[in-house]
Nucleic acid binder design. Structure first.
Length: 895
RNA sequence: GCCCCGAUGGCGGAAUCGGUAGACGCAGCGGAUUCAAAAUCCGCCGCCGAAAGGUGUGCCAGUUCGAGUCUGGCUCGGGGCACCA
């Protein structure tokens, strides 16, 4: 900043943004160095997938992070804000298929472009810590960790189910299965079981669950979602002996053992061994099992499809009644849950009820609900004790909500268990099953082990060698990393690695014989599960992490910011990894990785379309549309700018390619500058809510910055003075303005620091400047106050709009660097107020207002309120029965 | 289907611990300035009503002196559901 030059009278963002960014680069303003003498603040935003260019969601995410980064820097913290690239993933392979470019080259060029975009937004990122996860320097360490975990038994191999495209001969992601068909081939997808590697996350289920209670800095909803996902439940696991007198047993798990006397059939998954056995000499059943294998593996699809089943002809013995119960195959039973079999109690489970009605299976009521009645009730008397007069009516005609109730119900038609409530019945039944050696209480988790094998190319190779004599052998440390070859041809049919002998042919590290390298790669959640630790020491070529992790991550990363869509998987896996790495001895006990979490909302925009022949919609970008409004500003229609013809106004939806409603951040930056983009995004809505795009709102943000520039410019023209430091010499109106200034300092610091709500912080500064505009500041004391207001407002806004902040502050205080300034702190003396205004209510309705001394006692306030003419009018001469005084707020007279 | 969240003027939103509903901004309307326009500045702006006043925070109940905020029941919209990231 060259303060010798006269101040530009126009706000020209391009000039000041370039200058500010050069200044920060030159001074290394964003560089983070470990410094034990200062409190640290590690501010982390979820790293982007390098898809090509930044989208508005990125800009929002990283602006939030940058505001918190800059605010904490001004508060005296040693701040780290890193950035990197989640660089492995499917889109690179799709791009390769479409444009015939290798995934590596595509990814690296995207990274280069997106890095330049991030730089143009002026984020205070320490670029010296940048890395991409697709480089061997990064992924070698997760291969190394994988081999450690494999040796500890925390990684193991078992069969897993995948979406198989029988035409393209390839495994598809859930996203690539549309209405049960492959997205490219259109073929009906089948379930196929293949061997895969699994991470034993279930071994940490209890710790992952209980630690959620130690995360007060997380949104309650995210903790709740994770809790439900882990899904700890206590129930009974028990067995139905097969009725054929062999020793074989069919095991099931239930949380409703109290309904066990109502079991009328048992359902098993299509892949269950018993189903396979029964199908051996039952072609009809075999055909049904085949049918169950049609379709994808996504749970949402399985849960919403029509429930179907078929009897197997196999009977099992009810462990308590000795009755014969038939085994059915059900398409809704998942092999991956528990034992792949469930007891069916149609009377008390809604799904079983529907199934029993469909196949005409018996429904046996074993739970009753007491029915209450109030007898001899006299209107006007207190309601007497309710009296149980019997059980609510049960009918098999239709399902009623209470059938599945656990509370206020008791066993009926259940022999010795009759009359017992839920808990007592479960205890008694579990004890009886245990006595026979046929079952016991069991804690079960919904959480399943994490399958990490992917039959894809653009990912981290799994470091395993398959040897005919030695079995699966982890790649020894001195042969790591297993480097992913970058020059490959992507065909869309299977993994190219499996067609590259130069990749998979190898020697067994144990016996030296011919062996085959694993060609599957890892789930890309693997990379994102530990990147935040690597930022502390990205340059270490000898170890995965080092002692710098202890400095930056002590007590957890201070702030993590990212989309709510990652609430479960990414955050759960990252928590899991932190515990794994602790147990492998890599890091001390850091506890939870993310102390504070902010989940930002989506960026949405209006949609416009035209209906084409055949009902297909042609989506039109909002930038090409003019909206027509009536005289009150309500939209009445819209036209396409190119031809002036009408288009249909659709809903407001998440910005996406498919709805063509995306706004390119680059055009915004080019037109208005980074500060306007940042300001609009922070002002439009609080960070955790969805943000609606508005071109007019962007204009408004730009207008505000231009106005701010002009206010400072006009002041500087008259001449700089020393900022006021007390109320001395101020008029009453000026003292009011100064009080507002200091109130605003407190408000903005609280909004940035505690509330993380930036829209209200901006609104508060706007209010301050509105008051500044209306106040006469022409005398000497006023000039000093003007200087104080402008200096402070510039610093208050600096975290959000740092470029203009840097420039204006240097104009107001020649030679000063806003980025190094301390955040303004409210002066208690300026906040003092003699008189306050209280609202007066009569019967809860606002009727008037009174002014009283700030220290007035309750009696004085009551008297003033009762004397208020408006209050008296609405009391209509009635005496006040009660007067409620809420200090500093209002008086409510109950008449 | 299951888990979680949300709903306030024409629009985005504010009201932080149950206490003035609509701050701030956008759009709109009226005016000033201008040869004119842009830009800028000033004023108005929930709904009904001439006013007094009434009414109003998705819908239906409830708790309370007082409910956008708390409780129960719905409706609609969004996120996640384990291979999108």
């Amino acid at each position: 900043m060259n303060s010798a030059m006269p101040m530009q009278d126009k706000y020209i963002p391009a000039d000041i943004e370039r200058a500010a960014q050069q200044h920060w680069d030159k001074t290394g303003a964003a560089r983070a160095v470990e410094d034990a003498s200062k409190p640290k603040y590690y501010c982390l935003s979820m790293f982007p997938y390098p898809s090509g260019k930044l989208h508005m969601g990125h800009v929002r995410n990283y602006t939030i992070g940058d505001v918190l980064t800059r605010f904490h820097k001004m508060q005296g913290y040693n701040v780290l804000q890193p950035m990197g690239w989640d660089a492995f993933g499917m889109p690179a392979e799709n791009a390769a298929l479409q444009n015939n470019v290798p995934p590596a080259g595509w990814t690296y060029s995207n990274i280069d472009y997106m890095r330049s975009q991030l730089k143009s937004l002026g984020f205070a990122i320490d670029w010296e810590r940048e890395f991409a996860t697709c480089t061997p320097e990064y992924y070698r360490w997760e291969q190394w960790l994988f081999t450690r975990l494999y040796e500890k038994g925390l990684v193991y191999k078992k069969l897993g189910t995948v979406n198989w495209d029988p035409v393209d001969h390839t495994v598809l992601a859930n996203e690539q299965v549309i209405d049960g068909r492959g997205w490219r081939s259109g073929a009906l997808i089948e379930k196929r079981e293949i061997p895969m590697y699994y991470m034993k996350i279930t071994a940490y289920a209890d710790e992952l669950l209980t630690e959620l209670d130690n995360l007060p800095g997380w949104p309650e909803q995210v903790r709740l979602m994770q809790k439900n996902w882990i899904g700890k439940s206590t129930g009974v696991r028990f067995a139905f002996p097969l009725a054929d007198n062999t020793d074989e047993k069919l095991w099931v798990f239930t949380t409703r053992a109290d309904t066990i006397m109502g079991v009328t059939f048992v359902a098993v998954a299509a892949e269950h061994p018993l189903a396979t056995k029964a199908a051996a000499n039952n072609p009809e059943l075999a055909a049904f099992i085949e049918e169950c294998k049609k379709g994808g593996i996504a749970e949402a699809d399985i849960a919403t499809m029509e429930k179907k089943g078929m009897p197997t002809g196999i009977f099992v013995t009810h462990p308590l009644t000795g009755e014969q119960v038939e085994v059915w195959v059900g398409n809704y039973v998942l092999m991956s849950y528990g034992d792949g079999a469930v007891m069916a109690v149609p009377a008390h489970d809604e799904r079983d009820f529907a199934f029993a009605k469909k196949y005409d299976l018996p429904i046996k009521q074993v739970i009753g609900r007491p029915f209450f009645e109030i007898r001899n009730y006299e209107p006007g008397t207190p309601i007497p004790q309710q009296q149980v007069v019997g059980s609510s009516e049960f009918t098999t005609e239709h399902w009623q909500e209470w059938y599945a109730d656990k509370q206020n119900t008791f066993c009926v038609n259940s022999g010795k268990y009759d009359g017992l409530g839920y808990e007592a019945a479960v205890d008694a039944i579990a004890a009886d099953l245990a006595a026979q050696g046929l079952g016991d209480k069991k804690v079960q988790f919904r959480l399943r082990d994490w399958g990490i094998s992917r039959q894809r190319y653009w990912g981290c190779p799994i470091p395993i060698i398959h040897c005919k004599t030695c079995g699966d052998v982890p790649v020894p440390d001195d042969q790591l990393p297993v480097v992913l070859p970058e020059n490959v041809e992507i065909t869309g049919a299977g993994s190219p690695l499996a067609r590259m002998p130069e990749f998979y042919e190898c020697k067994c590290p144990k016996c030296g014989g011919d062996a085959r390298r694993e060609t599957d790669t890892m789930d890309t959640f693997f990379e994102s599960s530990w990147y935040f630790l690597r930022y502390a020491c990205p340059d270490n070529t000898k170890a995965m992490v080092d002692e710098r992790v202890a400095y930056w991550c002590k007590g957890g990363i201070d702030q993590y910011i990212g989309g709510i869509e990652h609430a479960i998987l990414h955050l759960l896996y990252s928590r899991f990894f932190t515990k794994l790495m602790r147990d492998v001895g890599l890091i001390g006990n850091l506890g939870e990785p993310f102390a504070n979490l902010l989940t930002q909302g989506m960026v949405v925009a209006p949609t416009f379309y035209r209906e084409l022949d055949g009902g297909k919609k042609q989506w039109i970008n909002p930038a090409d549309v003019d909206v027509v409004t009536d005289e009150r500003g309500r939209p009445t229609g819209a036209t396409l700018r190119a031809d002036g013809q009408p288009v249909v106004i659709g809903g407001t939806e998440k910005m996406s390619k498919s709805k063509n409603n995306g706004v390119d951040p680059q055009s915004l930056i080019d037109q208005y500058g980074a500060d306007t983009a940042r300001l609009f995004i922070m002002f439009a809505s609080p960070p955790d809510q969805s943000l609606e795009w508005s071109d007019a709102g962007v204009e408004g943000a730009f207008r505000f910055l231009r106005r701010l520039w002009k206010l400072v410019h006009d002041h500087v023209q008259i001449g700089l003075v020393a900022a006021s430091t007390s109320n001395e010499g101020l008029s009453a109106a000026q003292a009011d303005l100064r009080r507002k200034l200091h109130q605003t300092m407190g408000k903005v610091a609280d909004d940035y620091g505690r509330r993380k709500q930036f829209n209200t912080a901006i609104a508060a500064v706007m209010e301050l400047l509105n008051a500044y505009d209306k106040c006469d500041l022409s005398d000497a004391a006023g000039r000093a106050l003007a200087q104080e207001v402008l200096e402070s407002a510039t610093l208050l806004l600096f975290p959000i709009v740092p470029h203009i902040g840097q420039a204006l502050y240097a104009e107001l205080k020649p030679g000063a660097d806003a980025g190094l300034a301390a955040f303004p702190k409210a002066d208690p003396a300026a906040l003092k107020q003699d008189e306050i205004e209280l609202m007066v209510q009569v019967n809860g309705k606002l009727r008037g207002a009174i002014r009283v001394l700030a220290e007035a006692d309750k009696a004085t306030i009551e008297a003033a309120a009762l004397a208020n003419p408006e209050a008296q009018k609405f009391m209509e001469g009635k005496p006040a029965r009660k007067v409620i005084v809420v200090p500093g707020r209002l008086v409510n007279i109950v008449a």
